[in-house]
Measured scan of single mutants.
Amino acid sequence: MEVRTIKVFTTVDNINLHTQVVDMSMTYGQQFGPTYLDGADVTKIKPHNSHEGKTFYVLPNDDTLRVEAFEYYHTTDPSFLGRYMSALNHTKKWKYPQVNGLTSIKWADNNCYLATALLTLQQIELKFNPPALQDAYYRARAGEAANFCALILAYCNKTVGELGDVRETMSYLFQHANLDSCKRVLNVVCKTCGQQQTTLKGVEAVMYMGTLSYEQFKKGVQIPCTCGKQATKYLVQQESPFVMMSAPPAQYELKHGTFTCASEYTGNYQCGHYKHITSKETLYCIDGALLTKSSEYKGPITDVFYKENSYTTTIK
């Protein structure tokens, strides 16, 4: 009895394709271990004539594949690729409408935090270190965002349907971005203890939790000093293409032309909904596939993004 075979390709990165001759009487799992086709788990399936010449994702289970996976995804987590594939199996079914010149995501599976993050990423200057993220990001900007969303979920250790947080998501993504040249110098002034300067680099240099107003941050924000008295913390120097200011959701007025974009969060910790506000020729609110415009805006804002380049204080 002759062994019926077909020729397929296996890959971990969709760049390096490895030619395989597979036995049609055995499952993919018996031949390769966990195997995925377009995100779908085909591990328990036997090869079919229609699979001839198709590319299958496999887990990096030998040295060659491990090197290829690390170079593309910059992670050695053995569960990463499987999590990416199972997320992709959902995100490829989502709709990605162009809204006001940006790629958004039609609401499904509690994905409003991903839509808000995706919209924000198209408006701030950011370059990702893992080629996987950078490639998928370019495709997302062009309207094909399924891979990018699935990668975000995998890097953030999230599953489809789980509630997510924009600030946490951005923080994970910033860790995989090139923020080497970003720098922030802060000064804390206390009447009792004097003053202390701190220099922050990388992710810490672009994120701040405690106030939404970048102007206020430049002037000074009140913080408790270690001595128990009130101290003032203010920005001395900022070198970065953008800054992200966050605070627990509270009524906040966004003035046209003073910011790049913002995240609105309605609801409580267990259950809520994100919308995205962007400042173009007027203010726009993007909620999944829905767009509304207004000249002014007041609502429960939790993150505001500002364009920056270089700032030095005039406070002496």
Score class of each variant (00 low, 15 high):
Ala289Lys: 10
Asp63His: 12
Val236Asp: 00
Leu65Arg: 11
Gly299Pro: 10
Tyr208Asn: 08
Asp62Gly: 10
Ser181Asn: 12
Gln122Leu: 01
Gln197Gly: 07
Phe305Tyr: 07
Gly272Met: 00
Asn49Leu: 15
Asn89Lys: 14
Gly53Cys: 11
Leu283Pro: 00
Ser263His: 14
Gln122Lys: 01
Val160Gln: 03
Gly82Met: 15
Leu114Met: 06
Leu254Tyr: 03
Glu215Lys: 07
Val8Arg: 04
Asp303Thr: 04
His18Gly: 05
Trp94Asn: 05
Lys106Cys: 05
Asp180Arg: 08
Thr159Asn: 12
Gly228Val: 00
Ala108Arg: 05
Ser294His: 15
Val21Ala: 13
Tyr306Pro: 00
Val166His: 00
Thr313Cys: 15
Tyr234Ser: 06
Pro241Val: 00
Lys183Cys: 06
Gly288Phe: 00
Ile277Asn: 08
Asn187Cys: 12
Leu153Val: 09
Tyr269Gln: 15
Glu71Gln: 09
Gly194Asn: 13
Thr198Asn: 08
Asn61Val: 10
Tyr28Glu: 10
Asn61Lys: 11
Gln238Asp: 02
Ser25Pro: 03
Lys298Trp: 13
Leu133Val: 05
Lys307Leu: 10
Thr258Pro: 01
Thr260Pro: 01
Arg66Glu: 10
Leu114Pro: 04
Lys46Gly: 09
Leu81Met: 11
Thr76Met: 15
Cys225Gln: 01
Lys219Met: 13
Thr260Ala: 12
Thr76Ser: 14
Glu68Cys: 06
Cys182Lys: 02
Gly161Lys: 07
Leu163Met: 13
Leu126His: 03
Gly164Trp: 06
Phe32Tyr: 09
Met209Leu: 08
Pro130Tyr: 02
Ala69Asp: 09
Ala140Asp: 04
Met209Cys: 15
Pro131Glu: 05
Glu68Asn: 02
His74Asp: 07
Leu151Phe: 03
Gln196Arg: 14
Arg141Phe: 07
Arg184Gln: 05
Cys261His: 03
Thr232Trp: 09
Glu308Gly: 07
Glu239His: 10
Ala250Gly: 11
Tyr73Gln: 01
Gln123Gly: 04
Lys280Ser: 12
Ile105Arg: 04
Leu133Phe: 00
Leu126Cys: 09
His18Arg: 07
His51Phe: 04
Tyr274Pro: 00
Asn111His: 00
Thr35Asn: 09
Asp165Thr: 04
Leu88Pro: 05
Glu71Trp: 03
Thr258His: 13
Lys92Arg: 14
Ser240Ile: 01
Val8Ala: 13
Pro248Ala: 13
Gly33Leu: 01
